[in-house]
Write a protein that binds this DNA or RNA. Structure first.
Lengths: 344, 344
DNA sequence: CTGAAAGCGCTTACAG
DNA sequence: CTGAAAGCGCTTACAG
């Protein structure tokens, strides 16, 4: 190595060993290698007319040799580039997130948008993630939770579409409304003779969820006296634990309405381990309409979210906001739908 | 509208109604509005030193009024931009895809990469999707299937990392190896007294999958005579149908090894509907290690993929290829691991 | 069929 | 603290 040229000090690890990171080839490098101008390279690379087959071949060979790749920034600057959607979910390991993502990705592809996926539930790095996402995309959509607070001052004019953040949110948003489906399910419970229903709610601090209290009300209005219990965490495991306690009583419930499908799976599991038959001994229902609910045994009755509908609104809002054309209804509502299956 | 200026013809729909799409504000617009130079705008927007609080305020106000957002292309051209990974899956509705995606997104975030998610199983549009993806990302990784053929000629030098494409693939790749886990499971089956195992394979045309024949061999070597059956499609529903037939026989199987977890769920479902107890009457195992397998009742024994390990290799390869530094092992292997749960 | 010029929107030195 | 200049890598007219 003595005598070889180097730009860095002797102690620099970058200066030692193996083929170092080479500067990426640009259009000018290819042009020089092929002995043509850069616009001729553009013609060859982009398959445009007005270039002889022989020249094209020579250019493409040079490009290949140099491992040339057009810079998406250089190109995007002049063409405008594709639109990019940033999808933020809070926990990719909850099947709810990918079902939403699948619908959004599908719809986005149909509209010519790309989607960058971010899991904001990741330990500590949420702020950094949002910063880098906001620099890469045209519109951000998703479950931002507390991170939506002070958005304007932190991320300037990056349009934001909030999922299920409430109708009074200052941002554009899509809200889920389970009210009608809850009434339908309550009516169904009554119709099949339920007497002692339990509402198994999530673990929101000191509070009852909207869907929890809605179900309580719907059952009470029909003359039942539902019991409200909370899981200490919104997981199938905790749902299972609470269920195990409740069904061990002298007069156990004959129906359990779980906060979501994942928790309902925990309920099903606890019932099975206790030797209870669902739905004969006890009925179970969840919320979300996850695909998995149709694959377990018994299949799960649920209040399903129409993810395609959510995705449709998402892209509609994204396109409008991306075009700086906010002359549309910025608050959409998607209703849940009762899907009766074996468990209830 | 008469007399108002318009650039387009009278019949142009763009010329009618509502605030039309305005040109997006640039840094120069903000500079003009605030009465400063563009580099002062840069300082304000990017929170850099060397600017008075009062000037900064004025610039930020102007930016806000104009809804200014820095162009990611302009910025990327000079800063280099973040690295972007394109993740291609074949079917986002199969839980396998999101579990992989979750791991990759998590790891990518840790390494400062963004990931764009594409579902190539979408009707017909695969080619268009790959084209637009290849223009947006630095490296593409995933299940490309037949689309990996002729990659070089179609997408030039865009680095490609193939998942589970076989060790003889010309591209960089990560391969899954179930061999050892299959031996472990076969040994377990034998140890617990299995006599009549069935291997329920996927519906690959006229062929037996690698894992299917590996399991057949592993069982035969242990003195058993396993039966091989194929589902007419690789879905839980078809797995369910085949299972229903097989367990109806005079001497039904006492164990079923399914091609993957999703099909194993179908098997569980069929067993339950037939009144068979798992694992007492019949044992069931799948492949993939999906989270859902731990949530159903009975919980599913499986050969688990270490998605974090796959993600780790993915990012390692992506970084190396993105840096044009292919002096590393371009073919990685991740082994399955036997996870014994209730079903077997 | 090919190339010289202009410009997309930014940031990074550098000069005041 | 502020601004004039240069340049990132590409494509789009335009001229030959």
């Amino acid at each position: 190595m003595a005598g070889s040229s180097r730009l860095t000090g002797a102690g620099d690890p970058e200066a030692t060993g193996s083929p170092a990171t080479r500067r990426r080839a640009t259009i000018l490098d290819v042009a020089a290698a092929a002995g043509v101008s850069r616009q001729t390279v553009t013609r060859a690379i982009n398959d445009m007319p007005g270039i002889s087959v022989e020249t094209k071949r020579r250019v493409l060979d040079a490009a290949s040799t140099l491992a040339y790749r057009p810079s998406r920034f250089g190109r995007g600057l002049v063409t405008g580039g594709d639109s990019q959607l940033g999808l933020v979910v809070s926990d990719l390991t909850n099947p709810y997130s990918p079902e939403l993502a699948a619908a959004v990705v599908r719809r986005a592809a149909a509209e010519g948008w790309s989607v960058s996926l971010v899991d904001i539930g990741l330990a500590g790095s949420a702020d950094r993630l949002l910063h880098s996402l906001h620099a890469q995309v045209d519109v951000i959509v998703g479950y931002l939770g507390e991170w939506a607070l002070g958005w304007e001052s932190r991320f300037g004019a990056t349009p934001l579409i909030l999922l299920d953040a409430g109708a009074d949110s200052p941002h554009a948003g899509i809200n889920l409304n389970p009210a009608a489906a809850i009434e339908d399910l309550a009516a169904h419970f009554v119709a099949v003779g339920t007497r002692r229903p339990v509402v198994l709610d999530a673990s929101e601090p000191h509070a009852t969820s909207g869907r929890g209290s809605a179900m309580m009300g719907a059952l009470e209005r029909r003359g039942l006296s539902p019991e409200l219990v909370h899981a200490s965490a919104s997981t199938p495991e905790h749902a299972s634990a609470v269920t195990a306690q409740v069904i061990r009583r002298a007069t156990p419930p004959d129906a359990i309405f779980a906060f979501n499908d994942l928790m309902a799976l925990g309920v099903l599991s606890a019932c099975r381990h206790a030797g209870l038959d669902v739905p004969r001994d006890i009925r179970v229902a969840g919320v979300d309409g996850l695909t998995i609910g149709g694959l377990v045994a018994p299949t799960l009755t649920t209040l399903a979210v129409d993810f395609d509908e959510v995705a449709r609104h998402t892209l509609e809002l994204a396109v409008a906001l991306g075009d700086r054309r906010p002359d549309i209804d910025l608050h959409r509502v998607v209703s849940h739908r009762l899907v009766l299956r074996e468990s209830a």
